[in-house]
Design a protein around this nucleic acid. Sequence first.
DNA 1: CCGGTAGTATTACAGACGTAATCATTCCTA
DNA 2: TAGGAATGATTACGTCTGTAATACTACCGG
Lengths: 126, 126
Amino acid sequence: MPSNIPNISEAEWTIMEVVWSRSPLTANQVIQALDGHCDWHPKTIRTMLNRLVHKQALRYEQSGREYLYRPAVTRDRCVKHASRSFLKQVFGGASSSLLAHFVQHEKLTDEDVDRLRQLLDQRKDA
Amino acid sequence: MPSNIPNISEAEWTIMEVVWSRSPLTANQVIQALDGHCDWHPKTIRTMLNRLVHKQALRYEQSGREYLYRPAVTRDRCVKHASRSFLKQVFGGASSSLLAHFVQHEKLTDEDVDRLRQLLDQRKDA
DNA sequence: CCGGTAGTATTACAGACGTAATCATTCCTA
DNA sequence: TAGGAATGATTACGTCTGTAATACTACCGG
């Protein structure tokens, strides 16, 4: 029984972040959490919640006349899944190339660099 | 005049890789290059070449009765663009988190690690 | 000169996505 | 008790994707 991570689109990812960080919540709470950040119509957000349930990225339980949504997949698993796809598609699976790219082209503070060095040190080398 | 990087889908990316690495080539050469790797129908590949031209990810010039395709955007720019989107979507734009993730969860040889340390050293710190 | 072949261009079609509007149900309130 | 408001369900619709098939056109060979 392998992962079975549902495909979460870009817009859906935004919804998932909210649910991951404050689960469980009602549709309205999701809408409020996004108010100001996105400007999606509430209907749109409800639609996306629905789709995410169908994709089995979210679950819900009834609570009064509303639903309480929770993640059905952990953020970790989704991050890993998305990272793998990206790594494969853009860097041909070579994590070293990917890392080189980000070290060279994206901003890092000195602290970031230090922490990264530590991670490299702690890495259990084969 | 900002970037204007066209959106290149996953399947299209495969085509682009071929063109980036051996440009210029004819449709048939792309088809042959992919033979064995993908199993797309030749018609499918021609369709994708066409779409990529419309998206202005590829250009072509006539050569006899065929076209010679070339990239209209560099791989570098596309990699950077895709990396930014991914970074933003999955790691909220924090490159340090992204780097930590890949260092901790993806395979790296000892040489990879050494090279990465060097890159960190060479980094022009602010 | 005519028809087949090899290219390109156009069309097809289902499923995903972004973005909602409309429908149906139910509960609260006047 | 009937009507409106809130919620979830269904439907809508244009674009993008994956995956081709079909149409058109021009050149080559008989």
